[in-house]
């Protein structure tokens, strides 16, 4: 693997391999010595054009636990916002000898541009681009599901037969997109539920089903319910009348949560709007994987960095 730009181009085999390596990384996280020497001498740059402390810290922990040197380049509020281009920034990183670049960018496709422009030799990891993809988030979601479903027997397995419901602002969600490609590749059945205004106009080519009625969808007894974050700015785009109506119609409130079997996993990519898309009771329940997702994020990102940066660059993996 030379870059990790999206889940769409991942085969089942590649995804399972990454998840299996993440299992090894997770085992290391349970030891007293949590660090591996694997990427000693390699430099990983966290290039964040958009604020996300959570994601940056997760990647930083992953890189440091593999003994890479980490440089945080927060491009927000720096010369970048004063007109320095992606190209100039990339050339700076190249001059610094970056082996890996973890990029978060508000523009869809920016990681692909960075990886294919010829400006840098580094391996590129997409840490979220616009409303396009967020592959490591989907991988950690899949990892979390697989562990809950199969426990110690997870290695080598996919998510065959698991039924996953993704609820909310699919239109603007890179997490939803990455999951919509990855989970079906691993054998899961995915259903998207949202107000029609928050679904893309045409999802016929997506390997998922869509619907508008959350209660009906929950009645089909999914194994996983993933609630997406509603961004404050959507309130002003006439996507739905107001937050009260949204919460009543598409929120995982107490009544809906109580009606779920206690084996149903409740997921959220965070940060949560409690009381809007998810009620506190669901978020804090044992069924909620929110805290595991954070820990698993480090393991999955270690696996991704390992696959990108440990081999000879350009050699077929």
């Amino acid at each position: 693997m030379n870059h990790l730009l999206g889940t769409r181009e991942l085969s089942r085999e590649q995804a399972v391999e990454l998840l299996d390596i993440a299992e090894d990384m997770a085992a290391v996280q349970e030891r007293e010595v949590k660090k591996l020497p694997t990427l000693r001498g390699k430099t990983v740059v966290n290039l964040f054009f958009e604020d996300s402390t959570r994601t940056r810290i997760s990647f930083e922990a992953a890189a440091k636990r593999l003994s890479a040197d980490v440089i945080n380049f927060s491009a927000k509020g720096s010369s970048v916002s004063k007109g320095e281009s992606l190209k100039d920034t990339a050339q700076t990183l190249q001059a610094m000898g970056a082996d890996g670049v973890v990029i978060r960018h508000p523009a869809s496709g920016a990681p692909l541009t960075l990886a294919t422009s010829g400006w840098i030799d580094a391996g590129v990891v997409n840490a979220g681009d616009g409303t396009h993809e967020h592959p490591t988030q989907a991988l950690l979601d899949a990892f979390t599901m697989r562990r809950r479903l199969h426990g110690a027997a997870s290695r080598g397995r996919g998510l065959d037969g698991a039924r996953v419901l993704i609820v909310g602002d699919v239109l603007h969600s890179r997490v939803a997109r990455s999951n919509a490609w990855l989970l079906p590749a691993l054998g899961a059945e995915v259903e998207l539920v949202a107000p029609p205004t928050l679904l893309p106009v045409d999802t016929r080519r997506w390997p998922v089903t869509t619907s508008y009625d959350l209660d009906e969808a929950l009645g089909r007894r999914p194994d996983v319910v993933m609630m997406l974050r509603i961004q404050a700015e959507r309130m002003h785009g006439a996507f739905f009348p107001n937050s009260r109506e949204y919460a009543r119609t598409w929120g995982l409130d107490d009544a809906r949560f109580d009606a779920l079997p206690d084996t149903t996993m409740v997921m959220h990519p965070g940060p949560m709007n409690r009381g809007l898309e998810i009620a506190a009771r669901a978020a804090d329940s044992p069924q909620s994987t929110v805290r595991e997702q954070v820990a698993n994020g480090v393991s999955v990102r270690m696996a991704a960095l390992y696959l990108l940066l440990s081999g000879e660059r350009g050699a077929a993996a």
């Binding site: 769409r8 869809s108 496709g109 409303t131 396009h132 890179r174 997109r177 106009v201 045409d202 997506w206």
Partner: peptide, 18 residues
């Protein structure tokens, strides 16, 4: 708007120009 609105804009995560 960034590209034609349709199946592809949804996949690429680019705002649609209907």
């Amino acid at each position: 708007a960034q590209m034609n609105e349709g199946a592809l804009s949804g996949e690429l995560g680019l705002a649609g120009w209907p």
